[in-house]
Amino acid sequence: MNVSIKDSFKKDAIYSVVSWIALLSLYFIFNDHGIQDIITKVAILGLFAMSLNILIGYLGLIAFGHATFFAAGAYTLGLFLQSDFIIEYNIGSWSIPIALSLSVLLPGILATIVGVICIRLREIYFSFLTLAFQMIFYSLILALVGITGGDQGLMGGFPKPPFLGIDLGIHFHFYAFTTFIVILAVFLMRQIIESPFGYGLRMIRDNHERPAALGFNIRSHQLLAFIIAGSLAGLAGSLQALLDVGAYPEWAFWSKSAEPLFMILLGGMQTFLGPLLGALIFELLNDFVSANTRYYGLILGLVILIFVLGFKKGLLDWIVIRGRKN
C-alpha cells in the first residue's frame, strides 16, 4: 500500500515510455500512411480534448470557447515560422522548438486574460462569456486579413528546418515527434491531475461554496487551471498546424469547440484517458462515415443522441464503473 512519492510518478513515467514504444511499433506494423496519420490526428485531438477535460471533468466548468486557444497555438506557430525574424536572427534549426514553445506561451497568456474575466461568472454565464471571447477571436482572425490571410487561412506554408537530427519533413520523424510531445503533455497532465492541485480542482467541482470556509482560495486555482488548459490546447493547435502546414479560421469557430465536448462525451469525463478514447472514436467515426456516406451529420447526430439519451456517460467511464461493480 505504502507507495512512495517517487514510485507512482515512476510508474506513470514507465507507462508513458511503454506507450510511446508501442505507438512506434504500430507505425511499422501498419506500414500504411492512412492508418499512421489517423494515429497522429487522434493524438493531437486527444490532447485537445484532454486539456478541455481539465476544466469540464475535474473543475466542473463548461468552457465553450476552448478552440480559441487551439487556434491561437496554430496561428502562433504558423506566423512565427513564416516570419522574417527567423532569417534575420539566423535561428534556423532552433525555429521549430522555439515556435512550439511560443505556441504554449502565447495561448497561455491569452488564457490568463480571458480567464481572469470569465471565472468571475458561473455556469451558463461562464459558458457564454467563453463563447463570446472565442467569437471575438474568430472575428479578429477574419478581419486581420493582412496578417492571418482572413477566411483563406494562413497560406503559403512554412519551412520546417531539421533540429537535433529530427526532420519533420520525414513521415516517420513527424509521427514519432508528435506522439512523443503528446505523451509528454499527457504525462504532465496526469501529474497535475493527481497532485494536491488536481484534488483542489475536484473540490471546487464538487462544492464551490465550502472551500472558502477551509481557507482555500478557489479563484486563483480556477485561473491556473484555465491557463494550463489553454496552454495545452495551444500546443495541440500548433501540432495540428505543423501537420497541415497551415492554420484556418474554422479552428477558432464555435463548432471547433463543440468537437472536444463531443469527444469527452464519447470517451468519458471521469476517467483520465476518457477523452483520448473519445478522440479515437470520433476520428474513426469521421473517417468511416465520410468514406461511406454523404450524410455525415445524420450519422454523427444519431451517435450523439445514443450517448446523450442512452449511456448518459462516456464509454470509458461506463467500462470503469462496470468494472468496479463486478
Binding site: I62, L265, G297, L300, G301, V308
Partner: peptide, 20 residues
C-alpha cells in the same frame, strides 16, 4: 441533465436536421 448534455443534444439535432 447538466449543461454539457443539453448542449450536445442540441448539437446532435442540428447535425441531423441539417442533413435531413
Amino acid at each position: 441533465s447538466n449543461l454539457l448534455i443539453q448542449i450536445l443534444l442540441c448539437y446532435a439535432v442540428i447535425l441531423i436536421v441539417d442533413d435531413l
